[in-house]
């Protein structure tokens, strides 16, 4: 329990660290941060008003504290483009990103679990080589490029699926598939390693020696022990998933946080980008806590 409380405390410190990094980034950039934050079109009065409003006339330390305490209270500033609180924009786009991510994760599991199991159970078989080839290819192709090819093939040439947006239910298929490709390599490797390691444990041999049914051996004795590393890696991959969704959403014009981020970035809407980075970090940290909690439930050894 103490461990878990420390874990949460640590996550708060991690988030504060992220806040400091973002804070430093804007201030290290060449030029006046107020000009950056106010946007290129703002006149002198607006800039000076914003400087006082943001407290940028005050010492660095005070600015940092104000920035962090605002962020902790959920005040991520105001978008320059939309003239609305950044948090509102994020919360509006969030469900779309969550939906897309879950679909992508599900697709990735559909690919990685069989691929990982095949290469663990039948090493050097044709199926193993195929699985490995697919994973190596997935690791090597640029996802945005594959996305374009997918659009060209399925949306333009064959006309089976919509190429962008989220107006139809089928619109999620292509972006979810593209986003899932990022997850294949690590997830497959994790499933494979977990299967090999669990299968070579003494307790697996014990289960066999007890004459239990194969179903019980696999589902009760082995699967549960395999879950911990898989849950952990899914938790750790949240960051990469969010990174990937910036690119994927932008290519497919999927109206989630990624598209918002890319549009804000290209429009030099720094407060929004900054807010999205902080918010994403918070999601990553929260999900890794959830993953840890799940591991505790699955494996009683971790509790002591």
């Amino acid at each position: 329990m103490l461990n878990f409380l420390l874990r949460i405390l640590r996550s708060v410190l991690v988030l504060l660290g992220v806040g400091c990094l973002i804070f430093a980034l804007i201030r290290l950039a060449p030029g006046d941060p107020v000009t950056l934050l106010a946007g290129p079109t703002a006149d002198i009065q607006t800039v000076e008003a914003l400087r006082i409003q943001l407290g940028l006339d005050q010492p660095m330390g005070v600015q940092l504290l104000k920035f962090l305490s605002n962020a902790l209270r959920g005040d991520l500033g105001e978008s320059l483009v939309h003239r609305r609180p950044v948090l509102d924009l994020i919360l509006y786009a969030l469900p779309q990103t969550v939906y897309l991510s879950i679909c992508a994760l599900f697709t990735a599991l559909l690919v990685s679990v069989p691929a990982g199991l095949v290469s663990a159970l039948r090493p050097s078989s044709a199926a193993d080589r195929l699985a490995e080839g697919v994973v190596l290819a997935a690791q090597s192709v640029p996802v945005f490029w594959v996305s374009i090819l997918l659009i060209q093939l399925f949306a333009v040439r064959l006309g089976w699926l919509p190429s962008s947006g989220n107006d139809q239910w089928a619109a999620v298929i292509l972006p979810a598939f593209a986003l899932s490709i990022l997850q294949w390599p690590l997830l497959t490797k994790t499933v494979r390693t977990a299967a090999i390691s669990v299968g070579s444990q003494d307790y697996a041999k014990t289960a066999l020696a007890k004459g239990l049914s194969s179903k019980r051996i696999v589902f009760i004795h082995l699967l549960r022990n395999m879950l911990v590393p898989i849950v952990t890696i899914i938790g750790l991959q949240t960051g990469a998933m969010l990174s990937g969704s910036v690119v994927t959403e932008a290519v497919f014009a999927w109206p989630g946080i990624g598209t918002l981020a890319m549009a804000s970035l290209l429009a030099r809407d720094y407060p929004t980008v900054q807010g999205i980075v902080l918010f994403s970090a918070a999601i990553v940290v929260t999900i890794s806590i959830v993953a840890d909690a799940l591991s505790l439930i699955i494996d009683p050894r971790l509790r002591s």
């Binding site: 991690v14 988030l15 660290g17 992220v18 990094l21 973002i22 960051g239 990469a240 969010l242 990174s243 990937g244 910036v246 690119v247 981020a261 970035l265 980008v273 999205i276 980075v277 994403s280 970090a281 990553v284 940290v285 890794s288």
Partner: peptide, 9 residues
């Protein structure tokens, strides 16, 4: 801290 921020963004 660094790994929890989206790299690309």
């Amino acid at each position: 801290a660094q790994l929890s921020i989206p790299f690309v963004l």
